[in-house]
Amino acid sequence: NLFVALYDFVASGDNTLSITKGEKLRVLGYNHNGEWCEAQTKNGQGWVPSNYITPVN
């Protein structure tokens, strides 16, 4: 599942992941309501807002 970041997101805690607009990432899963997804980039792994990313076509 390859996705791309639509916006910059700055991590606010130990379990969140900073991403940069245009960065590619893999989604590993979603939380119970789908608002957050666990993602992996070359810089690490953590939670990002699911509305900040979109699938790569």
Rank of each mutant, 00 (worst) to 15 (best):
N1R: 08
N1S: 02
F3W: 07
F3R: 05
F3A: 05
F3G: 04
F3T: 03
F3S: 05
V4G: 02
A5K: 01
A5G: 05
A5S: 13
A5R: 01
A5E: 00
L6S: 08
L6E: 12
L6H: 08
Y7V: 11
D8N: 10
F9M: 06
F9G: 01
F9K: 06
F9T: 03
F9H: 03
V10K: 13
V10R: 11
V10F: 13
V10L: 08
V10Y: 04
A11G: 08
A11D: 10
A11W: 03
S12C: 05
S12Q: 03
G13T: 12
D14E: 07
N15F: 06
N15C: 13
N15K: 15
N15L: 08
T16L: 03
T16W: 06
L17Q: 04
L17T: 08
S18C: 13
S18G: 10
S18E: 05
I19N: 00
I19D: 01
I19V: 07
I19H: 00
I19K: 02
T20P: 01
T20R: 08
K21Y: 07
K21E: 09
K21R: 08
G22C: 05
G22H: 03
E23Q: 09
E23L: 01
K24V: 06
L25I: 08
L25A: 04
R26P: 00
R26H: 12
R26C: 07
V27N: 04
V27Y: 00
V27C: 07
V27S: 06
L28K: 05
L28V: 10
L28E: 07
L28N: 10
G29Q: 12
G29A: 10
G29E: 08
Y30C: 06
N31K: 15
N31M: 02
N31I: 09
N31C: 15
H32P: 14
H32N: 05
N33S: 11
N33A: 12
N33H: 13
G34P: 02
G34N: 15
E35D: 15
E35T: 09
E35I: 15
E35S: 10
E35K: 12
W36R: 09
W36K: 02
E38I: 05
E38M: 08
E38Y: 04
E38R: 06
A39F: 03
A39M: 03
Q40E: 07
Q40D: 04
Q40V: 13
Q40K: 15
T41C: 11
T41H: 11
K42A: 11
K42M: 08
N43L: 12
N43I: 12
N43S: 14
G44R: 07
G44H: 01
G44E: 07
Q45R: 08
Q45V: 09
Q45T: 12
Q45K: 15
Q45I: 03
G46L: 05
G46R: 03
W47D: 02
W47Q: 01
W47G: 00
V48A: 02
V48I: 13
P49M: 04
P49V: 00
P49Q: 05
S50G: 09
N51M: 05
N51T: 11
N51I: 06
Y52P: 00
I53Y: 00
I53F: 02
I53W: 00
T54P: 01
T54G: 14
P55W: 02
P55K: 10
P55Y: 15
V56T: 13
V56H: 12
V56Q: 03
